[in-house]
């Protein structure tokens, strides 16, 4: 678990700070999180690092009202599956959005936030959350 091992977090900092995954040039599929092999092409796959644009829409969501201690301070919060424009889907919190306003297909963009911290002397995890594009840019 991340609260015990700094390395477990450190080794994927690129992925969770910048939404870096892979693009398989054989089958033209985008993957997030980064993969070791292309699950469709396997040995025929060619993976290249790819940084996602961070734009997408909400595929589904939940309002979390009961959470373990690591997230208790944030409840109630929105967590969603975000479908990125490149095709991959990921799971992230939605911020800068009232829980009454969130809806399926809402356009969102990534932002850099504190995810959680493991107690007073534990490590702090930063990474991606998403926010409605309307609020930030004034257009879809």
């Amino acid at each position: 678990m991340a609260e015990k091992g700094v390395a477990q977090l450190w080794r994927k900092i690129k992925a969770i700070y910048t939404i870096q995954g892979d693009h398989c040039t054989t089958c033209d599929t985008y993957y997030f999180p980064p993969r070791v092999v292309c699950p469709q092409c396997r040995r025929k796959g060619q993976l290249e690092k790819y940084t996602f644009k961070g734009l997408g829409k909400i595929h589904t969501f939940a309002i979390v009202r009961q959470a373990p201690d690591t997230f208790k301070r944030q409840i109630p919060y929105i967590v969603a599956q975000v479908e990125l424009d490149e095709g991959a889907r990921l799971t992230a919190q939605i911020v800068n959005c009232d829980i009454e306003d969130v809806h399926i297909d809402m356009r969102v963009r990534s932002c850099f936030r504190k995810i959680t911290e493991y107690g007073e002397s534990g490590i702090i995890i930063y990474g991606y959350k998403f926010e409605p594009t309307m609020k930030v840019t004034g257009h879809e």
Partner: peptide
């Protein structure tokens, strides 16, 4: 866990 739970998606979520 690393890509769902760690980002705040509880099992009920």
């Amino acid at each position: 866990w690393e890509w769902e739970g760690m980002f705040g998606a509880t099992f009920p979520a």
